[in-house]
Design a protein around this nucleic acid. Structure first.
Lengths: 352, 352
DNA sequence: CATCCCGAGTAGAACGTTTAACTCGGTGGC
DNA sequence: GCCACCGAGTTAAACGTTCTACTCGGGATG
């Protein structure tokens, strides 16, 4: 008869009963609406606390209010999440913004096939599981921007959209600063044979970066000695370095890599070929992963604040949801060069 | 008047109308219950497809059915997720099991304070946001096992519970195999001054591993030359190595580290002290991160299949939820030693 | 003194599913 | 020829909230 305290979860009705008010009153108190006197408010709060009650997420969501969850779909094979700490950083940043507001992040890792990705977004939207989504890795001709608009799913992109698409996005100001600093650093030390190992060119940011590299070199009256398109893997980096090493006369004296993982792999490939870093070859990475600090020689790289980017993206999305005022989070600072030990003057070669 | 197709989301009622049946019939079709003829089934499916409808997660959850989401609370500062790729691996594994079943993973990263962690689990349970949770990093006297039982929250622990707690858990068979192989490897090569740099001792697994190391050394009639408790950080590893290097007579000829990050940092610290690896000092890590392959010298380490562990944990939890038969996923294989380049015979010192 | 309004609260209808209990023909057994 | 039963559906009540529209009593206002 007596519905023992322990059995089942408490509901708003139970709380209302304990506090001696209507369920509507409880709802108002919880949601901070007015029209409730202070004493009543206290009684309700006490009752809720006593019963350890908090509103059922499902019921709240059903009623049309917020889900208090954001979604993120990662269209990569599950194990790539691992190889590239980029995502971990991004997630950290997002979470740091979400956690204080008790928002959760619903993560879906789908395979590489684009249809799986689309299906995932569709489900997220149709099933109303999340209030909005965070998109990453803008691709050339990316179909997702249209998709989220059609699904009326609030979204924000981390990075730069394809072709001025009006999708809300966050990116650091002065995107190109880091790469420019890197090139200036090399040129100032006297390098003139500089190679660039880029990421896969179906991503918007890799194309953009290559353009920055080329135009910045051009400003110094130079052209890249080699441009290699790689898959962001250690394997590809090793191959690229091996190919560039011969003939020695055309060998670059410095290589810029599209990410740190490739740069570190490249350094070790060079060493195995008998090249000293930075004596014979200077290497610069991109990302500034913790990894760069602990390898030997410590990696000169471009630091960009991925974590802050994630934070800003989350803040922007929450802003769209009117959950907090927009623009309260500082825009991520421009990428900048971090000079460590993997760069130095070019070898005094026959060309000098 | 006419409720245009485009406006609002389709509901089960719309689908029923289009198919010319009752909502109950639609529900039965979607959930694969019997009592519906094949032609009707097809009509319903066609209608659902046409309207791009799938059941609202909120309504389904409210009705008492499954949430189709699992939760994971990580009680660490957000940026530690980054430093230690362990979590990324684990998440990969979990997702690989969840994705095909259209389950999501709701991630909550809370700070280091235990109360925040408890609060997060509480909310997950009270708000009925997830069907179950995955616990990681079993700690000494861990309060979470009792908590999830009290909250009646299905849970599975990745790793070994504290004091034979009956919480469901997954771990590799032959837990100690990898470390034993590592020590045998060193002893066979002639090392006798072996040090161990452990992780923080509030974790169950670090204590366990230290015990394995000690007992395995004892079997060879040895004792660890040094045992250092560190925080799994590169910083601590550098300090540990620096301290152990002097006096030279007592310097270990081999160091086992509690994880790869510390091992790599340790190698480079040794080099800066003028020690050759593996010439003067052999180093073994633990985890077998991709990192170990790309550094120079390539790291000898203990591989344990964290990803498979995540997969198994997810499978076990889904089994509890009767979402799939239990035991369908292979138990992770025992950790095993991967010999690369950072180990070799001890230097021919004065002691020989 | 009637009126209007305001603060404090209540009643009850949604929200979109699932499911127990029912209806309604038809069919097979005896 | 009657009954029981079965397959194929339907009806309607929950699930736990939120929110609109209401009530009710008491000042202030005219």
């Amino acid at each position: 008869m007596a519905r023992g305290k322990g059995s089942g979860k408490a509901t708003i009705t139970d709380v209302a009963a304990v506090a001696g008010v209507s369920v509507a009153a409880v709802s108002k108190v919880i949601n901070g609406k007015g029209g409730i006197s202070e004493p009543t408010r206290q009684r309700v709060l006490a009752a809720a606390d006593k019963l350890q009650w908090s509103p059922s997420a499902a019921a709240v969501a059903l009623r049309g209010a917020r889900t208090r969850a954001l979604g993120m779909v990662v269209g990569r094979a599950a194990d790539l999440l691992t190889a590239d700490p980029h995502f971990a950083l991004l997630i950290s940043g997002i979470e740091s913004e979400l956690a204080p507001l008790d928002y959760g992040l619903l993560l879906h890792i789908v395979g590489e096939e684009p249809e799986a990705e689309v299906r995932a977004y569709r489900r997220l939207a149709e099933e109303r599981r999340v209030d909005g989504v965070i998109l990453t890795e803008s691709r050339i001709g990316d179909p997702r921007f249209d998709l989220v608009r059609r699904l009326r799913l609030p979204a924000v992109l981390v990075g730069r959209p394809w072709q001025e698409d009006p999708i809300p996005h966050v990116q650091a100001s002065g995107q190109d600063a880091g790469l420019r600093e890197a090139i200036n650093h090399l040129v100032e030390m006297g390098h003139s044979r500089i190679a660039y190992v880029s990421g896969p060119e179906d991503r918007v940011h890799t194309v953009y970066r290559r353009q920055v590299v080329e135009s910045c070199l051009a400003e110094h009256g130079l052209r890249a000695s080699h441009i290699v398109v790689a898959e962001f893997t250690a394997q590809d980096a090793v191959e690229a370095v091996t190919r560039m090493a011969e003939p020695a006369a055309e060998r670059p004296t410095a290589i810029l890599f599209g990410n740190d993982t490739m740069a570190v792999a490249g350094i070790n490939a060079a060493r195995r070929l008998g090249l000293d870093v930075p004596g014979d070859l200077s290497v610069i990475g991109y990302d500034d992963l913790p990894l760069g600090e602990i390898v030997y020689p410590r990696l000169t790289t471009v630091n960009h604040d991925v974590e802050q980017l994630g934070k800003a993206a989350a803040a922007e999305l929450l802003g769209q949801l009117e959950e907090r005022g927009a623009g309260e989070v500082a825009a991520p600072r421009p990428p900048r060069l971090v000079v460590r030990e993997s760069t130095g003057p070019p070898p005094a070669g026959p060309s000098s």
